[in-house]
């Protein structure tokens, strides 16, 4: 882990409130693995005080990409950064997703949960067959589709308002289309807590890796501010034990 002053290389609006940012961060980009995240120090000022934990959506040589939704003051300030502005990144943080080999892989994303799955898909597409189930509020939020088209065998889309794909939730689709598959696949899911919970309740016979989101303090295991309940008792750290968990090992 390193704290690296990183220059904004490119910033792009993907939907009315989702942005993509490439940063020049040679050390973190080189060490990063799918599933991991960075802590972004938004400003030198004491307000906002904490960093924002954002998953690494991709790397390319000395650069890394983050994708974020504007949800508050911090992300609002982040989107206003200009090319060549600098921010401190702490990373790479967290564990890495176990990489499947020669499998049918289902990637299931809800909303901006699609971000870490892009990095994962780039790695997995070399020796697995990928199927993407992606659900969002509406058509505009179905981001990154061109990139996933190059990596996935099939893409299933849902929107809550029916503006594209099947109307409804991605979990309904998952149940209907993919679970009766002949060869037991492996599932990677990233999205809201409720989505992960639903997936676990409907998918029982296969391995599910969930990418968790949680409010964090330090992001590096020293404040005990983030936690997810273990199956038996006590808590695991989302920042250092996760953010990727085998969903059979945690309480949702």
């Amino acid at each position: 882990m390193i704290r690296e002053l990183s220059k904004v290389y490119k910033i792009e609006k993907l939907s009315p409130d989702i942005y993509s940012m490439w940063l020049v961060s040679p050390v973190i980009a080189k060490r990063a693995r799918p599933g991991q995240f960075v802590q972004v120090q938004i400003s030198d000022s004491i307000d906002p005080f904490l960093c924002r934990p954002l998953s690494i959506a991709n790397v390319n040589k000395n650069k890394l990409r983050i994708i974020f939704r504007i949800i508050g003051k911090g992300t609002e300030l982040l989107k206003d950064k200009k090319v060549d502005d600098s921010v401190y990144l702490l990373g790479p943080l967290g564990n890495q997703a176990e990489l499947a080999k020669n499998k049918n892989v289902i990637l299931c994303a809800g909303g901006v949960g699609i971000a870490p799955l892009l990095f994962l898909a780039k790695q997995l597409s070399k020796n697995n067959q990928l199927f993407l189930c992606f659900g969002a509020k509406n058509k505009k939020e179905l981001i990154l589709l061109d990139e996933f088209k190059q990596l996935c065998e099939t893409i299933f889309l849902t929107t809550e308002d029916g503006s594209k794909g099947t109307k409804g939730f991605v979990t309904d689709l998952l149940l209907a289309k993919l679970i009766p598959s002949p060869r037991p696949p492996i599932l990677y899911a990233a999205g809201p807590f409720g989505m992960l919970k639903k997936i676990r309740s409907i998918v029982t016979n296969i391995k599910i890796y969930g990418f968790l989101e949680e409010r964090m303090g330090c992001g590096c295991g020293i404040c005990f501010g983030c936690g997810v309940k273990k199956k038996d008792d006590g808590y695991l750290r989302v920042c250092t034990d996760g953010p990727v968990f085998d969903l059979s090992e945690i309480e949702l």
Binding site: F49, L50, F224, G225, C226, G227
Partner: peptide, 30 residues
């Protein structure tokens, strides 16, 4: 970090939130 006689699992999440120029936490001595 605070040490107690018996193990403590700590408080339910969320345990932390940002406030203006500060942090509000309730880790609960895990």
């Amino acid at each position: 970090k605070g040490i107690t006689l018996k193990p403590r699992a700590g408080n339910p999440v969320p345990r932390i939130c940002e406030t203006p120029a500060g942090i509000l936490n309730s880790v609960g001595l895990e």
